[in-house]
Write a protein that binds this DNA or RNA. Sequence first.
DNA 1: ACCTGAACACCGTTCAAGT
DNA 2: ACCTGAACACCGTTCAAGT
Lengths: 221, 221
Amino acid sequence: MTQDATTGRMGRPARTSRDEILRAARIVIDRDGWQKLTIRALGKELGVGAATIYHHVRDREDLLIQLLVEHAGRSIDVSLPEEPEARILAAAVAIRDTLAALPWATEVLATDGFLARLGGRAVQMVEAIVATAIAAGASQEDAVALFRNIWYLTVGEIQVRARTDSRPEARDARASRFADLDAEATPALASIGEQWVAWAAHDTYADGVASIIAGTLRRSG
Amino acid sequence: MTQDATTGRMGRPARTSRDEILRAARIVIDRDGWQKLTIRALGKELGVGAATIYHHVRDREDLLIQLLVEHAGRSIDVSLPEEPEARILAAAVAIRDTLAALPWATEVLATDGFLARLGGRAVQMVEAIVATAIAAGASQEDAVALFRNIWYLTVGEIQVRARTDSRPEARDARASRFADLDAEATPALASIGEQWVAWAAHDTYADGVASIIAGTLRRSG
DNA sequence: ACCTGAACACCGTTCAAGT
DNA sequence: ACCTGAACACCGTTCAAGT
């Protein structure tokens, strides 16, 4: 565990370790962007063959998850307010903000047990959402449903924003599409016109989550 | 346009057309699954070189979008109830059901202007959501925010469900993860335990959308 | 105009062989 | 144990050349 590959003082020093792989992966991501993080590029960065990576991570997805565990498990802010709706909202926003800052997360995000795999504080946020909903009068099943709807909104928001941000050309194409709208068939959209693009840049995530929380708690209690 | 490649009666008959490409693409998807739909496989199916495909579609994404336009533009059910909240909900469910039935949609779904690109009835569903919200008292900006939050929930739900369904191994792994939960750190999750997996199979999409609608309209009017 | 083979520049993953 | 080169089985896309 404490073996240092740079000194290599054991009989058969490991030239690579899980920690070194994750460190190299972060270097590649920071320097070249996460899309460039391939097993082969990672091997090159470490000065080892691509095949070597497979002695330390199961596959590419495992690598990405491990990277996320390191980051998300630690960096989520855990101070949550007491009032139930505000508390659930704050937990959701913490999850969203953390994952949105890790753009390579989008690739592995869309799995139902994803946050459980991250462990650490990510799971504590899920616990906060579910436990608070139950304390506020929701059934266990409704609390799970609440979490899942929040999770769907979160995945969608992160995914759409990541895609939109990473291809600015689409922005102009989108604007012109709104200008072409037929005022007969789609009057509301036509009258909104190009304002859509500007409004779409606003962050409405918290509003969406707040609505889902209020809707669920109203039905339950 | 009406030229038939099988008779080839023009001087230089086209061996392939946009329609033939889309037809072949559907055959590959139905027979081998949408993951197998590559430009190369499509060329093989048509008996032409992969390079030929590029004379008729711009790239792989364009192919997928065109496939979706054909399908989603037509098959969305357009009979919507009159009552505002029910109307918006029905439009959202129509979009979700249509896209969820087209699993290859997940690959191109996460773009902000996506439904506009689909055109046809897909845009009419967006119009229905936005126009109904405005008629019910929402500002144009709130109506756009409402649509976007519904859209995020939709993208997330489709994406997560598609991923979960396509890898049943994850199901068992998930169940065992819940069994391992620490009753001290996460009492609510621990007491739910393996029931989570069963509850996660329930469709809570409509509840989520209904909450978002109610929340937005309550704030506005 | 339409189509071709060949090439470019990659992927993730496996595996027999070496040290 | 750990690491290697080489191979397997692919990708999307471009382009000079043919008909």
